Simulated scan of single mutants.
Amino acid sequence: MKKLALALALLIFLGPSPALLAVGLLMTPAAQAAACLPGSLTVGAIPDELTATAADGTSITLTRTQLTHAATIITVGGRTSGVGSPGVVIALMAALTESRLRMLANTGAYPESGDYPNDGNGADHDSLGLFQMRPASGWGTVAELMDPDYQARAFYGGAGGPNYPSPRGLLDIPGWQQMDPGEAAQAVEVSAYPDRYQNYRPVAETILRVLTAPPRGGGGGSATPIVPETTRTVFPLPTGTWVRTDPFGMRVHPITGEWSMHYGTDFAAADGTPIFAIADGVVTHAGFSGGYGGLIVIEHTVGGQRVASAYAHMWENGIYVSDGQTVSAGQHIGDVGSSGQSTGAHLHFEIRDGGSSGTAVDSEPWLAEHGALDLDAASTSACRPSPAGAA
């Protein structure tokens, strides 16, 4: 009975089965990145505010906006191989010191910086953003440095960092793991005031402890999962690897020949192309489901609203997540396949406002409206994990 109920729920969620008219693909499978998702850092619910005490005894109250930036730093650290909790604490210490976890424009040096989303205006030389990085020092363009995700990736650095090999990020500092955290932060920031960072270590540790969700317990049950606000949205396939072949809306079903509603969008891509989670969320289904073949359904909170995304037609060994797992935006969750009612390798992708039982909407304008970023296979941890395995 439980399996029958699940099957009925999935039918309600997904509607008529999609398929792809056979097309010849002249695309190369996306390259696999070298680093894997560590999976040890997961952001939970973000509180409206948090008060913590610095080493000098000063009480610091952070707003939800500041904590959301902290969540970005934690999430980026979690998907960057070699960082771990120690590296995230150092990054939080640096951002607290440099900007008090605010995305600062600098209209005096770069008037155009005020055109990007920001939390205020700074005036330290030509510094910008959370980590007060300077375009003149080679950290990136104004547009790049006004992106919190980019700044976090630049701070962590490493061979996959956007600033490699210079300026050096944390992973480019030899022996940073053995250094005092304040000294490690200074090694990246190269500040004229090197002793400031250590004062914020207790605050950084408090932020990490509060924002990081505890491991999921056993317990089971069918309660709706608690899903924290996402830190960003991304497109589900690497840039340059896909072609839209069947849009959202009414169409003649390519297999049944019936005039019916197509609740998703079909993107043709080479077999094995990585599929990314479009946002932070919780997997509510990972396994086979009739005509959809290999199917992943993820619940998200985006802009305070519950949303579900669905990814269909993966092969059985091309599903890399499991029910109940928390995932990050841009995480490699599976590979494009052609299982179920499909006549060619492609991703059938759906968005439902309100969650799995909500209203299907056209995914492409939804992604554009929510600022979905384009990723290439090497800009995220796109190595193949071990298949999660699902019935």
Rank of each mutant, 00 (worst) to 15 (best):
A95M: 06
G138L: 09
L96Y: 03
H125S: 15
T141Y: 14
E98F: 01
N121I: 04
E144F: 00
M93I: 01
G129W: 02
A94Y: 06
L130K: 06
A109F: 09
D119T: 11
R102L: 13
A152T: 13
T97S: 13
P117C: 14
D119L: 10
D124E: 12
R100T: 13
A143I: 04
G140S: 10
A143C: 07
A152K: 09
G140T: 11
G120W: 04
G114K: 08
G129I: 09
A105C: 10
L128A: 01
G140E: 12
T141G: 15
A95V: 02
H125M: 13
Q132R: 07
E112W: 11
W139G: 03
L130G: 07
N121F: 08
F131A: 00
D147W: 07
R134E: 14
N118R: 02
N106P: 03
G120M: 07
M146L: 12
E112C: 04
S99L: 03
G120D: 10
P148Q: 02
L92S: 06
A109S: 15
T141V: 14
T107C: 07
T107I: 13
N121L: 06
M103S: 04
A105V: 08
R100I: 00
N121Y: 09
T97E: 13
M93R: 01
Y110W: 15
Q151N: 08
D119K: 08
D115G: 15
D119I: 11
T107M: 13
N118T: 06
T97Q: 14
N118P: 06
S99G: 07
Y116E: 09
Y110D: 12
A136R: 13
A123R: 02
G122E: 00
T141A: 11
A136C: 14
A95G: 15
Y110N: 10
A152L: 11
L104G: 02
N106R: 01
Y110A: 06
Q132V: 05
R100W: 00
D147I: 02
Q132I: 04
T107K: 14
S127R: 05
L128I: 03
A143Q: 14
L128C: 00
T141S: 15
G120Y: 09
G138V: 13
D115Y: 14
A123N: 15
D147Q: 09
D147Y: 09
L92E: 05
G120R: 04
D115I: 03
L145F: 04
L101H: 01
A143G: 07
H125K: 15
A109W: 03
